[in-house]
């Protein structure tokens, strides 16, 4: 009660200072950015609102928009699927930390194929997306898939048509495992695809893959499960073929080298570890190091602290992976040392 009165007083004082009106409720936290975390953020904020009365107002306008909004100072926190490097963060006086983990999975449309049967290696996926392997019964695919009946059909590559964090993690992985991909295409939220057709959003890619026979695409795990698509296992950096699942995503998050990454600048694709899913993805939160309104930033951090501690179950229900315990304590230590409140 006391703190809420205090924050309100500060809010009123600030409003008077900078001459703006309408800061009636200081604990109305605003955020903008990646669409990836929108479902879990709205679930969390609903529960959090019921518990504490604090509201999170999140606009899922895309990572690019989130970065632009936080840099312009129009929101309390931004969110991006692509981490900013420490230099860029420093220039913008921003701090960065992970919020939740997900994963990207390859899906295929081959008649009679059941989920989890097909196997890929990273370089193989890169060659398919480069347009070098064009037939399903190509030797390179057949070799690691002796149990699958591969048709003599053309492969139709499906990719995202919109810029997206899913694409970023997918091509980041392809760049790590294929020097040719890195040189010819590179990585980003949208790239110049050598072959294929583009679907809008995860749902667009899922729809295309479901409709075009002999197609391959990549979607977040939740979409593959909801649409009952034939996802594939992928060989990880330890040489093991792993299935996409909560456990393998979590293994990737746990084995990634967070300790030595400044400002959590780390993309956890191709993570080490026997059980790690090679295309796991992290969403990042961006927040000011020296906020103009410390109370609002503190309220935002309190929310994430609560989400780390209590939101894990809800995250799993929506096919997200909560952050491992060591990582969340590292994040909280990072807040203490980096953010002035």
């Amino acid at each position: 009660m006391f703190t809420s009165i205090k924050t309100r007083l500060i809010g009123v004082g600030l409003a008077a200072l900078i001459g703006t009106a309408g800061m009636a409720q200081a604990a109305d936290i605003t955020g903008a950015g990646a669409t990836f975390i929108y479902p879990i953020l709205s679930k969390w904020s609903d529960t959090y609102n019921n518990k504490t009365g604090n509201k999170i107002n999140y606009q899922s306008i895309g990572s690019g928009g989130g970065i632009a909004q936080i840099k312009a100072g129009t929101v309390d926190f931004g969110s991006s699927d692509k981490p900013l490097d420490p230099k860029e963060l420093d220039e913008a006086h921003l701090a960065q930390f992970p919020s939740v983990i997900g994963g990207v999975v390859p899906v295929a449309n081959i008649e009679g194929l059941t989920p989890g049967k097909l196997r890929f290696t990273g370089p193989l996926l890169a060659d398919i997306y480069l347009g070098k392997i064009t037939k399903w019964n190509d030797k390179a695919i057949a070799q690691i898939n002796p149990d699958v009946k591969l048709p003599d059909a053309n492969i139709t590559v499906v990719h995202r048509s919109d810029g997206s964090g899913t694409t970023f993690n997918w091509v980041n992985y392809l760049s790590k495992v294929s020097p040719e991909w890195k040189e010819k295409v590179g990585e980003g939220t949208s790239v110049q695809w050598p072959v294929g057709v583009g679907g809008k959003g995860n749902e667009g890619v899922a729809a295309y893959v479901n409709q075009i026979k002999g197609s391959i695409g990549y979607v977040e795990l939740a979409y593959a499960l909801q649409n009952k698509m034939a996802f594939a296992s992928v060989q990880n950096s330890a040489g093991k073929f792993v299935q996409p699942s909560m456990e393998s995503f979590q293994a990737a998050a746990a084995s990634a080298d967070w300790k030595n990454s400044k400002d959590f600048f780390l993309v956890i694709t191709n993570a080490p570890g026997e059980n790690s899913w090679p295309i796991a993805a992290t969403n990042f939160i961006l927040i000011y190091k020296q906020p103009k309104d410390a109370a609002r930033t503190k309220a935002a951090l309190d929310f994430f602290k609560w989400a780390y501690a209590e939101g894990g179950k809800q995250a799993e229900e929506l096919d997200y992976v909560p952050l491992p315990k060591e990582l969340t304590s590292q994040i909280e230590a990072y807040w203490k040392s980096e953010i002035k409140m």
Binding site: G62, G64, S161, D162, G163, G188, K200
Partner: peptide, 12 residues
């Protein structure tokens, strides 16, 4: 029009 609609949100 399709290009703009697809790519504007993540034009970084």
């Amino acid at each position: 029009a399709a290009t703009i609609a697809n790519e504007f949100t993540e034009a970084d």
